[in-house]
């Protein structure tokens, strides 16, 4: 019976189906908010679904110079990773089902979608896709460093726990170092999502969507779905790690939804009020500015722990 429960959890709720539905909704929120910022009306609610179904029905072209198996499997790997993350996060938040070290697993799994994009791009053999893939790689190297420091701070502040359930119970944001790491993590997530200002890897007007350039039909649909689910999962991850987790009793539901929407809208607004940076600027930004700040926050947190000052 255990096994069916897990399969149910992975495929229906809170896994695949649930994540996909809310993910598509988040995409709609993204596009709608973008449109409102730009003085437009924006697409109808069902638009992301239409896009997805349409892509499923399109022909899938495979580039002649590419490696077929890798080219086709890369999107699926990415999607499965995100769904897993989503499942783990929700199980931890809802029923407290967790295992020791699930935070570490989640952090690892979150790199996989980016890797999948990279591998897919490289497998297509297109020079622009290769450029995009190499940019993606540099970007991963850039943002992972501050991101990991943030995670270390989180672990420290939640009393050396690497279990999501316990981390979710401590609202890290209630202190100086907490605020700092939350903001830095937000920017890292912007990069993970591939949103402006860090959309260097798929810069449409520079390298024509980069790694996605050769994708069409079903694999493209899967990639779009991955992006949609990321847009749902990453804010949830932020909430779990920094904002005291999800709460589903009474008014807590409203509060949770509000938290989620606020983060989503914040991400979208950042996306729409900045131009794209260059890849070298992005790397510099993450390494020379964010990483030291994150490290400083970490040191603050250490002091806070040692001298038991809660606001540090």
């Amino acid at each position: 019976m255990e096994i069916t429960r897990y399969i149910f959890a992975f495929l229906i709720f809170p896994g695949f189906l649930f994540t996909v539905i809310v993910g598509l909704f988040s995409t709609w929120v993204d596009r709608k908010v973008t449109a409102r910022v730009q003085w437009r009306v924006g697409p109808p609610l069902m638009q992301p679904l239409y896009d997805f179904v349409k892509l499923l029905g399109k022909e899938t072209l495979i580039p002649a110079g590419g490696s077929r198996a890798v080219f086709l499997s890369a999107p699926i790997v990415g999607l499965v990773a995100v769904i897993l993350v989503s499942t783990i996060l929700w199980l931890a938040n809802l029923w407290g089902t967790a295992f020791v070290g699930d935070l570490i697993v989640v952090v690892y799994l979150l790199v996989i979608p980016s890797l999948a994009i990279m591998i897919g791009g490289l497998a297509s053999g297109n020079p622009l896709a290769t450029t995009g893939a190499s940019r993606e790689m540099k970007l991963i190297l850039a943002y992972e460093l501050p991101f990991l420091i943030c995670m270390a701070t989180v672990i420290l502040k939640s009393g050396m726990s690497i279990k999501l359930v316990e981390i979710a119970k401590t609202p890290i944001i209630g202190s100086i170092s907490g605020v700092l790491v939350a903001l830095i993590a937000l920017l890292c997530i912007q990069a993970k999502l591939g949103f402006v200002p860090f959309d260097v890897a798929e810069a449409e007007t520079e390298i024509m969507s980069g790694p996605y350039i050769e994708y069409s039909g079903v694999p493209l649909a899967v990639f779009k779905l991955t992006q949609a689910t990321m847009l749902f999962t990453l804010p949830i991850f932020l909430i779990t790690a920094f904002l005291g987790g999800l709460n589903f009793s009474g008014w807590g539901i409203l509060w949770t939804v509000l938290k989620y929407l606020a983060i989503l809208v914040l991400i979208v607004v950042i996306k729409n009020t900045n131009p794209r940076v260059r890849i070298d600027q992005a790397v510099k930004f993450f390494w020379y500015y964010l990483a030291p700040v994150a490290a400083a926050a970490f040191v603050l947190a250490v002091f806070g722990q040692i001298y038991a000052i809660s606001w540090l």
Binding site: Q38, L61, S209, Y212
Partner: peptide
Amino acid sequence: LTPRFDIERFGMRLVGSIRHAD
């Protein structure tokens, strides 16, 4: 595409790669 006409209302988008076009 721009605010006065905004064809995104009908789900239309200008895409960057020929592979994504309908």
